[in-house]
Design a protein around this nucleic acid. Structure first.
Length: 432
RNA sequence: GCUGCGGUGGUGUAACGGUAGCAUACGGGCCUGUGGAGCCCUUGGUUUGGGUUCGAAUCCCAGCCGCGGCCCCA
C-alpha cells in the first residue's frame, strides 16, 4: 500500500495508512495509554512537580547544538524548512526544550520541579517497540546539586511502576565513577565515549563480545574486570590507587544510603555497566528495565546542559518514562475492558423514544457517562451491544414501566433489576 | 543510513504456475421485552508497480510497509 493513497485495478481509491513508524491507537489501547499518563501525572503532582508545556517544533539549531544530545541523535531528527526558510525540527526528547526554557528564564524559583508529558519524534528504523513518534513522561529537578533530587526521581519511579503493576527494577550508576574507573584502568580520555557505548551493551551481547569490540577499537579491556565485579568497594580501591579525585563514588553512596532509608533497596540495583547514550549526562544515571529486559524509562544528571543553551551554570537532573513502552509491556495487565460509559438507555417501543432522550440527558447532567440507542435497534440487540462493550448498567423504558411512570435499571453483571420513578432519576446515580 | 527475513478480507489462516477458500469479527435478519448463544444472509482480500507466461497469490525486479540485526534509544 504505501503511505499515499494508491489506486487499485478499477481506479478505486485505497485507504490511507499511517506514515512509517507511527501508529493509531484503537480505543482499547488509547484508554490504557491515557490511564498510564494519568498515573504519571498524578504521581508527579504528588511530589510537587508543576506542568510545563512547550512546542513540538523547535529550531534545528537548538536540537543539534553540539555537546548536548550527541551526534548520533542528529541523524534521527525530523528536520524540515518552513515557508520562511527557517530550519526547524521536531523535538526528540523533553529535556532539551526544558533546558531552553530554563536557560531563557530570568526569574525561576529554585528548585524548579517540572513535569511534561508529550509526544517526541525520532527518525530511526521502526521495529517492534520502536516508533518514530512516541510519548514520554518527564520529571526534572532544576537547581539542586544534592542527590536528594535523584532520590525524589527514584521514589516517584517506584510509585509509578508499582501502580502500573509492572515488574521492573531501576539500575543506577555514576558516569563520573565510570569515568574514574576507565581512566584508572588505562582508557584514554578521547576513548571514553566509545568505551561507554560499548560497555552499555553488555546485557545484550555479553562480556566476550564487548571485550572483542573494545579491542577492535584499541581500548584497553582491563576496565571490564572491575565492572564485572559490580562491587563499589572494589571499585573504590582501584580508584584510590590512581589519582582520580572527583569520582562520583561518594555521591552514589549517599544516594544509596537515602534509598535504603525510604525502603527501596530492593527496587534499586547498582549496575556499573550502565552508561546511557545521550552525551549530556554528567553524573548519576539511571534506567528502569522491565523483567523482560526492555527499557521503559531512564534519566540522570545533566549539570552542563543549560549553560550550553545560554543560561547560567545550573544543576539539573531528571527522568523520563516511555509511555508507549509501558503500554506495550502492560498490554493486558490493566484491565480496562469496561468503557467509561456507565449506563445505556433503551426503549422497548420506538414511540417511547422521547422518554429515553429525557432520561439520558438527565443522567448526563448529573455527570454520569451515559449512552442511548442511536439506531432504533431492538432491546435484544441493545443488550448485546451494551454487554459486549462492558457497560455495567442498562436502563429499560417500556410500556409496562411507563404505565407506572417508572424505568427499570438492570445490573448487567448480576442481572438484578430495580425500578426508579421517572421523577427521581437522580437516585439512580446515588445507588450505583 | 546499512543489512537479513517477511507481506492473502479488519484479524487469524488455506490454495502443485490453472475457479482465491475457511474461521472469526463487523453489518443485517429470525428467536415478536432481557444480553455475550444458535440458525440464515450480505459486505469485504492476494502490499503497489513493472516483467516472465496461454495463464501469477505462487517465479523475477523495484518500491512500500512490517519484523530482526547494525546504529541508537523510550
Amino acid at each position: 500500500m504505501g503511505s499515499n493513497p494508491s489506486r487499485g485495478l478499477l481506479g478505486v481509491m485505497m485507504a490511507f495508512e499511517t506514515v512509517r513508524g507511527m501508529r493509531d491507537l484503537p480505543p482499547e489501547l488509547a484508554r490504557k495509554k491515557q490511564k498510564i499518563e494519568e498515573i504519571c501525572k498524578q504521581t508527579f503532582e504528588r511530589y510537587g512537580f508543576e506542568p510545563l508545556d512547550t512546542p513540538i517544533v523547535e529550531s534545528l539549531e537548538l536540537l543539534t547544538k553540539k555537546g548536548s544530545a550527541g551526534e548520533a541523535i542528529e541523524n534521527e531528527i525530523y528536520a524540515f524548512e518552513d515557508k520562511g526558510g527557517r530550519k526547524l525540527g521536531l523535538r526528540f526528547d523533553l529535556t532539551v526544550p526544558l533546558a531552553r526554557f530554563v536557560a531563557s528564564s530570568r526569574s525561576l524559583q529554585i528548585p524548579f520541579k517540572r513535569y511534561q508529558i508529550g509526544k517526541v519524534y525520532r527518525y530511526d528504523r521502526p521495529q517492534a517497540k520502536r516508533y518514530r513518534e512516541f510519548t514520554q513522561a518527564d520529571a526534572d529537578i532544576i537547581g539542586v546539586s544534592s542527590v536528594l533530587a535523584e532520590l525524589e526521581l527514584i521514589s516517584l519511579s517506584y510509585d509509578i511502576i508499582k501502580e502500573l503493576r509492572i515488574e521492573a527494577k531501576l539500575a543506577l550508576n555514576s558516569r563520573k565513577l565510570l569515568e574514574s574507573i576507565a581512566i584508572a584502568s588505562g582508557v584514554k580520555r578521547d576513548q571514553l565515549s566509545d568505551c561507554f557505548r560499548i560497555i552499555d551493551k553488555v546485557s545484550k551481547v555479553g562480556w566476550d563480545e564487548i571485550e572483542k569490540e573494545l579491542c577492535s577499537k584499541k581500548i584497553r579491556p582491563d576496565i571490564l574486570d572491575i565492572i564485572k565485579r559490580n562491587d563499589l568497594e572494589y571499585a573504590k580501591k582501584v580508584i584510590l590507587s590512581s589519582e582520580q579525585c572527583d569520582n562520583g563514588l561518594e555521591r552514589l553512596n549517599d544516594l544509596l544510603r537515602y534509598v535504603k532509608i525510604i525502603g527501596l533497596s530492593d527496587f534499586v540495583n547498582v549496575d556499573l555497566s550502565l552508561a546511557r547514550g545521550l552525551d549530556y549526562y554528567t553524573d548519576i544515571v539511571m534506567e528502569i528495565k522491565s523483567l523482560d529486559g526492555t527499557s521503559i524509562g531512564g534519566g540522570g544528571r545533566y549539570d552542563g546542559l543549560i549553560e550550553k543553551y545560554g543560561g547560567k551554570s545550573t544543576y539539573a537532573t531528571g527522568i523520563s518514562f516511555g509511555i508507549d513502552r509501558m503500554l506495550d509491556t502492560i498490554f493486558d495487565k490493566i484491565i480496562s475492558k469496561e468503557t467509561m460509559v456507565k449506563a445505556f438507555v433503551a426503549v422497548v417501543r420506538n414511540e417511547d423514544f422521547d422518554e429515553a432522550l429525557k432520561v439520558v440527558t438527565k443522567l448526563r447532567s448529573m455527570g454520569m457517562n451515559a449512552e442511548f440507542d442511536l439506531m432504533h435497534r431492538n432491546i435484544s440487540k441493545n443488550l448485546e451491544y451494551a454487554s459486549r462493550k462492558g457497560i455495567p448498567y442498562f436502563i429499560i423504558i417500556g410500556p409496562k414501566e411507563l404505565s407506572e411512570r417508572k424505568v427499570k435499571l438492570r445490573d448487567m453483571k448480576t442481572g438484578k433489576e430495580r425500578y426508579f420513578n421517572l421523577s427521581d432519576i437522580e437516585k439512580i446515580k446515588e445507588t450505583l
